[in-house]
Amino acid sequence: MTDIAITVNGELRKASVPSETTLLQLLRDNFQLTGAKLGCDVGDCGACTVIVDGAAVNACLMLAVQAEGRDIITIEGLANRQVFHPLQQAFEESGALQCGFCGPGVILSAKALLDENPDPDVYEIRDALAGNLCRCTGYTKMIEAVQNAARILRGEPEISSRMISR
């Protein structure tokens, strides 16, 4: 067993786990943070995406011991009981998720992008989401939602798809 201490969503969390535990297993099984999903488990689908020290990574491809001392953000760290994160708000308003299984990963990939690049173009957004497979939406509304969230975060008025359709 290995003792691990990591910061998750701003809070120091500790666990003692076998060496072969992935970061994804640590988050889901030990910390009950089930927002990051177990999809393909080989780094193809992106459903397990979390942010480690500012970078989006596949939690299924990182051993928990490799996360020791690092700063992790999961989907549970974005909203509080009062308000959504602008990305979550924009995804809801655009109807950018259907079944939603890919959603936590997609939103965290988008967050990692916007944290570094507050005004990405469509190609940069597509590149940032290329590692998150979504079989429902076709991505169009996701890209629209990321653009809207970027506008909200920059303090500009958002362009709502509801407003466009009216």
Binding site: S19, E20, T22, D41, V42, G43, M62, L63, Q66
Partner: peptide
């Protein structure tokens, strides 16, 4: 050797290599 893990973890999960020690250089 374990560096980024993007290939090795897939191997550890699904391969048949007899490794029982991981040297993490990350």
């Amino acid at each position: 050797i374990l560096a980024g893990g993007t290939d090795l973890l897939v191997d550890l999960k699904h391969g048949s290599k007899p490794w029982d020690v991981i040297v993490d250089i990350s």
